[in-house]
Design a binder for these strands. Structure first.
Lengths: 168, 168
DNA sequence: GTTAAAACCTACTACGCCGGTAGGGATTTG
DNA sequence: CAAATCCCTACCGGCGTAGTAGGTTTTAAC
């Protein structure tokens, strides 16, 4: 499960990308629009600011706004900053690697071999998509309707087979 | 993070696939070989038996063994049986769907659009790989050494670009 | 038929993390 | 100065994870 922190952060960033021209937006404004607990969002935006993604201004007419262009914000970095590394196994994390206690031989660990692929696939998506691309995709989903649903952030690799119907 | 339950289960299944010819294997044997807490593994194997993947025999010379062929065991089902649905958002789960409370419009939810791709990519791997394929891959990693590392469970789709170096 | 090995079952628990809340302090505008 | 806003520290309840404890039942071997 993607933690609420990261979910709220992504929503707020999309919102801020939309309102780039409006100058600083106060926390309460975003919280109301996106149905996010205000105080919680406050802490989240602070972290995004410390991560260099947002700038803030205090006092009346203050608020938060994007510090950098949406096309330079990689969503993987957003998630990582707020919720830490997303490796499915400690031995697959580069930033927080540590050996699995129970692992007899890491090189031939079946779990690791499997999850390495999952991890790589996840990273390819979240680190291969920018905030700008995500906003564009939301727009496509809103205006395009059905055609927005089948659209992807990146052109699908290989044969475009959306024909799997797995359960979860 | 993949829960320990699923990790242990995968390890045990690989072990059992290797020892298919030996008849029933007692829990303690697997636990010792794979460095898994015996009582915990006991509960896990019981669940796998209830899921129809293993059979058991009681008494001396008893133990667990695979009920079905390794190539019919999909790893996604193993994880799902032990740790529940693996959707990154409740609104992406088919088996346990429920609407996100904070989501204003599901069809245009940015978080959902992004995570849907992640989810699909994950399912393609875990539901597209069988126990038999995983065993084969462990073998390749063990004997082949370096060439085993770059090998995938399935032929890579599209251009084989392993050239991303993301952090987590 | 006794012993022992194993599966099976129920209950309990310690710990950490997640998702907040509370309350105030600092800064800036009007 | 007043008010709006960001900023900071501290706290907390609930839940899930990763086990442990302690038995009962079945079955094979002697």
């Amino acid at each position: 499960m993607l933690p609420m922190k990261s979910r709220y952060a992504l929503k707020a960033l999309v919102f801020l990308a939309r309102h780039q021209a409006d100058g600083p937006v106060p926390v309460a404004g975003i919280a109301n629009a996106e149905a996010i607990p205000t105080k919680f969002l406050e802490a989240i935006l602070l972290e995004l600011r410390n991560a260099g993604i947002l700038t803030s201004r205090r006092g009346p007419t203050g608020g938060y706004q994007l510090r950098v262009e949406p096309k330079t914000v990689f969503l993987g970095d957003v998630i990582r900053n707020l919720s830490g590394p997303m490796a499915p196994l400690p031995c697959l994390s580069k930033s927080a690697y540590h050996r699995c206690a129970e692992c007899v031989d890491e090189a031939t660990c079946a779990v690791r071999l499997l999850m390495a692929d999952v991890h790589a696939a996840t990273l390819r998506i979240v680190d291969g998509t920018t905030l700008a691309e995500l906003v564009a995709r939301v727009d496509a989903a809103a205006t395009g309707g059905a055609e927005g649903q089948s659209q992807r952030c990146r052109p699908a690799e290989g044969p475009a087979n959306n024909d799997f119907d797995f359960i979860d």
